[in-house]
Write a protein that binds this DNA or RNA. Sequence first.
DNA 1: GCAAGCCTACCTACTGGTAGGTAATATCCT
DNA 2: AGGATATTACCTACCAGTAGGTAGGCTTGC
Lengths: 185, 185
Amino acid sequence: MNTTYTNILQHADALIQSNGFHGFSYADLAKELDIRKASIHHHFATKADLGIAFCQLKCEQLKQLESHLKTLPSAKARLQGYFAVFQSCANDGQMCGIYAMQTDLRLMAEPLQKQVLKMADLELNILSDILQVGLDNGEFNFKPTAYQQAVIICCAIKGALMLNRSEHHAGLFNQTCDAWIEMLA
Amino acid sequence: MNTTYTNILQHADALIQSNGFHGFSYADLAKELDIRKASIHHHFATKADLGIAFCQLKCEQLKQLESHLKTLPSAKARLQGYFAVFQSCANDGQMCGIYAMQTDLRLMAEPLQKQVLKMADLELNILSDILQVGLDNGEFNFKPTAYQQAVIICCAIKGALMLNRSEHHAGLFNQTCDAWIEMLA
DNA sequence: GCAAGCCTACCTACTGGTAGGTAATATCCT
DNA sequence: AGGATATTACCTACCAGTAGGTAGGCTTGC
């Protein structure tokens, strides 16, 4: 399905991951898609609505990812599968969209803020579950709670993803993923 | 010294830590300081100049911090001293300014980008040195290089600082600091 | 006298959002 | 089947507000 609606969301996704939610405008989006601003407003009445739709899309994608990861045999494979999601961002010099939304949190109206926090927590819970499984079956070894460990890993790889954008730190994201796999063993 | 120049920088600091570099305007700054926009332009001709001055200020503060931390007897105390810097941010619901600048990197002109990257790398090197000392004298134990470990810790605590802003994650920053002290032992 | 510091008044470009119109498609009623 | 009626999707043209920035004038202290 390649409707205008999904095209807008897709391009908004890319722009959010490059510049953050407040770092792009409807005009930017319109130019990229070669449609008019009013057409975007037709599908997403306000920018907050676009933000909310983005969060809902990410939540769906996260749930799909969770289902997919559960088919993998080991916690280690699941963690690597989780890391793999960000590989394309790393290649394209982008940040994590969820993180990018978090940084602009204070500039958002409350309904959007709520969606952002919900999305972020969904991700943390998915990662937390993977870590808990690994801890229980002896694959992983760490001292904090699974949730705390999830926060630490999640933040670390997303920060690395951000730093990874400058040439000086090229490869940093992959190094960080590898380091975590080794550190948890 | 409480000049208009330093007042502007100080308030810009707070706004950057709340909303990011592109999340505040000269008008916001002028309102807070009860001066006119043109007066800010008198001290910082362009917003990029203000950004560069911010980076230079942070670099000086980082160097001062480094000197101070070197007076502390152990690597663990130095690491805790480093963490302590962010305590006021955590209390005020703010992000790390260095991190906040990084997220908006793509929206900045090149001269400012350079300063941001320089500032970020200075911090990573300071943290890296602390970790190396701790590794060498047996206080700390970790597998990656000191620099890689510095990236991981730096990103993790700053991400936690960001998440810490929502009530749902209150206390997360301190938990993360404590977790790192324990994990490195 | 003159420079620093701050001001009023203004500019251009762009922001998110709105009003109102057109063409195509779908739905309904006889 | 054919005509009336909505609905969808897009458009042009605009709005008020805000962004960063500029020109030029008024104080104040050396």
